[in-house]
């Protein structure tokens, strides 16, 4: 994962880079994010952020998540094997089959009535993991975007999640300008590093203790 932050104020950009890296670490998504690119125009002011998520997100199959046992005609005992998806699954089943037909008996056991087996196996849960990751990435973005920049436009597409934010109305020309002048070229690395932010520690020369002295 690489984080690129571009701005005319390099010191601020470096602080923003640290902030981004820390938010990604906190949310534990550093392996799910390939690239993060930020552009900060202090004149307008405008903040652009794009995140490229990894494409290796496994699809979730019903058989991986549920074990289904038929107990009668149209009645099934369903056990949620992977509890990670339990809240989303329950919500999905209630919306697909109706709340009267889906009863939660225990924490991870459901009783379904008036339902075909095929309907259960065809539940649209394949994108569940991807959707979960996208939600976390959006959360990450809104932790990074300056809080005062309330005017936000979504510029996401299939390959990336991108947002542009400002405290003033965002014009199409501004977006076009960023696309033409910033996104069309390779991202630039910052010329300063973390040592510029924090003054270095004054180190005193250490006294080396010989083996014999140590014993004494």
């Amino acid at each position: 994962m690489t984080v690129y932050v571009e701005s005319e104020d390099e010191l601020g950009a470096l602080a923003m880079k640290l902030l981004t890296e820390d938010v990604i670490t906190n949310l534990a998504i550093s392996r799910s994010v390939v690239d993060v690119r930020e552009y900060i125009d202090l004149e307008v002011p405008i903040f652009y952020i794009e995140v490229v998520p990894t494409k290796r997100i496994p699809r979730v199959e019903v058989k991986d998540v549920l074990t289904v046992k038929e107990t009668g005609t149209g009645c099934f005992d369903v056990e949620i094997v992977n509890e990670r998806y339990a809240p989303q699954l329950l919500e999905l089943m209630w919306s697909e089959f109706g709340e009267d037909n889906v009863h939660q008996i225990e924490r991870n056991r459901l009783k379904l009535t008036k339902i075909n087996l095929e309907d259960i196996m065809n539940l649209p849960i394949g994108e569940m993991k991807k959707n979960e990751l996208m939600t976390v990435i959006r959360d990450m973005i809104f932790r990074i975007v300056p809080i005062g920049f309330r005017v936000i436009r979504n510029l996401s597409n299939d390959d990336k999640i991108a947002y542009i934010a400002s405290e003033n109305p965002i014009l199409d020309e501004q977006i076009q300008w960023i696309e033409d002048n910033v996104l069309s070229r390779q991202p630039r690395e910052l010329s300063i590093d973390r040592t510029e932010l924090i003054p270095e520690r004054e180190t005193k020369p250490r006294r080396i203790v010989t083996y014999k002295e140590d014993i004494i």
């Binding site: 820390d22 932010l197 924090i198 003054p199």
Partner: peptide
Amino acid sequence: PRMGKFPYKFKQIGELKI
């Protein structure tokens, strides 16, 4: 100066100086 919007608590001696 040097006291920005950092996402962590200060621990190093250089930081405590600030």
